[in-house]
Write a protein that binds this DNA or RNA. Structure first.
Lengths: 212, 212, 212, 212
DNA sequence: CATTAACCGAGACGGTACGTCCCGTCTTAAG
DNA sequence: CTTAAGACGGGACGTACCGTCTCGGTTAATG
């Protein structure tokens, strides 16, 4: 404090600090409800009761149930690993296959619910998109980038379009339920992605075409 | 499906017949609410009030709000046309481009809402999948089939996978909002579909691989 | 019903009729709570729960808890009797003494609560005043009127002022608690009322004085 | 009250002393809320916010909102004066008339609220009774006492009963609202009190009667 | 051509959850 | 040791809709 007390510090506000214990209890209660009776039965009142917490405490920190679930999921320690085998195909398969498997099992219902929630709440949609969804896109984009560095594929391949073509069908099957989310599907997705990444001239041509 | 789907004569029972006027008023009220304040605010009570109809009348004919909306949309006269230009690429583009445009405009919000609704209601999900969604898949599958007939592409191309790769990314962008639903995106989708359909050996190989 | 169907009838509206059973259960539950744990613990939620009724049903028919209690009390069969002994003093004493006794016992807390409620709710205040309170004033006014008819007291006595001087001190002791609500007090009240009613010229003189 | 109310030196303990500034701000905020939006909307949180004070500070010094209001009112400089005209009638009228006028105007709502509050809080009721209420009773009792000293009325008149008969109807009209709180009413009260004080034998006789 | 069964509007019902308000208590940092 | 700030568990509020249940009244095919 030698003069110059510019408030660059995070402004250690007065007042009782947020209870880490309550936060933990809330997230855990939400996860428990999610796993036992599903998202449909997850209510703020239910979470509050199970966590031994007042509703107000929940509303103070989360705008709606979706945010709680999202935070519970993303603060979950088991993160999606970043595959790095040295081979584009293997990297993709190691990314896509476990993801498809997870969606076919316990992650499916939660994912459905979160996406459904996002359709009616623009703010939550943005949060979901920029955190959870983007994390997964980033992994794939990183894989493609490394393959370009290695010279395995050309620099004209568009990682964004590739991400659409991998995650799009995955979500489509999850949400519409017209086909299985199995290993065959995972391999097909991988193969399709490979094919589109290997022969890339078409994409660049399209961009030029659009610029007309 | 060899004709005779009259399920043993529905036995036109006595009593007052269903009011066509009420049905019309209900569907119209639902559409009006959808267009003005959105699906979130669409409640059975609201529709009943706006249509000047009792709640019971609605519950007698529709299981939930989603079904009303679905019927309101599918009874809408403007149907998706079946493109038939003689060229696979042009057929695909004429299918995909208007669809993307529609989703980018007024169809988007309703589509989001229907899909969201389906995630919490398995029965509605099936209805949505087997009617609305399947209609669109069928058009694409038909286009691919005709191209195979013409010899433009081989018979080993998998129309189902193609449908996934076209509609998946479209829904993904609609629901996640990470990218534009514009003409460039439509052309990219079309180009990707073409590439995957033209060089097809990989897919068949994968099927064999899975059979091991 | 010989022609002439003028709608003097209470307009038998459509829709499910009000449930007499629910009404009864609500009033009974309110009384029970009142007698066991007191007005302070009487909440709409509590009444609804104890009556096996939804909150909405209560709110549909009563604006607040006070109205329920008021109705429960006034629909109670045990009414205040109208004394008629032929003597003004005895009539007054038979009116005042049991009333004071009741206030000193179980009626006291409820009365306090209703009056307290009325101070914060003008609409309820009017209801309380024009029903419960006025009923009691009317009995006293009637007693005084009959004494005037008998010639026991003059016609210049003001029954309204008398009512103030009888009920005022009673409520004052109830609400302020500075003195006992016992038989001595009842007799003092009665004697005071008698004295004021017997020698009445002063009151008329005051009225003339005010008219100046 | 013979001076020396220093209760054995309060042992001026260490630590930050009570903030007179906060006390003033709290009382003022309470008064402001009372005058603008009424007692119903007066909450501890509201007072704290308006006074720029923490809730804890309020709770440290006042048990509930009622006490704050009571202190705010009694610390108000304008005290009820003690009339001393040498005439019992004039003393009474000069006491009663301004009091009735005050209740008819700005004092009414606050008084209602304080009495209402007292009905649900025995501790506050006692405080209200032994301070504010008793002060007013004492003035009247003092007036009557002086008249007895002067020989204007006999010593068998009961000042306590008289206080009941004056303040009772006043409160009754205030709380029940069945009649005006105007000058005519004030004069009637005064006249009634005079009549009861002048001819007193009845009261003593009653006491004897009760002792049987 | 009367019966009668199914329909219709209105609207009350038991219920669940919502999001808000305020309570009285507590836990910080600052003075 | 007090203060401002503000988070905490808790309780009740009044509202919105849910899906069901009576009512009084239509409306057409059937007997």
């Amino acid at each position: 404090m030698t003069g110059m007390d510019l408030e660059t510090k995070p402004k250690t506000r007065a007042g009782r600090p947020r209870s880490a214990e309550s936060r933990r209890a809330i997230l855990q209660a939400a996860l428990l409800i999610l796993q036992t009776t599903g998202y449909r039965t997850l209510t703020i009142e239910g979470v509050a009761a199970k966590a031994g917490v007042s509703k107000q405490t929940i509303y103070r920190w989360w705008p709606s149930a979706g945010y709680i679930v999202l935070e519970a999921l993303t603060s979950d320690p088991q993160q999606q690993p970043m595959p790095d085998t040295g081979s584009l195909y293997d990297d993709l398969l190691e990314l896509i296959r476990p993801m498809v498997r997870a969606l076919a099992q316990r992650r499916g219902p939660v994912m459905k619910a979160l996406i459904a929630e996002a359709q009616a709440d623009a703010r939550f949609a943005e949060t979901l998109r920029t955190t959870f969804m983007q994390q997964h896109r980033d992994i794939l984009i990183n894989i493609v980038g490394r393959a370009q560095m290695r010279g395995e594929i050309g620099f004209d391949a568009d990682p964004e379009i590739t991400a659409d073509l991998v995650y799009g069908p995955m979500l489509y099957r999850l949400l519409n339920g017209h086909g299985e989310l199995d290993d065959l599907f995972a391999r097909n997705l991988t193969a399709s992605a490979m094919r589109l990444l290997k022969g890339t001239p078409a994409v660049t041509r399209l961009r030029a075409e659009a610029a007309e």
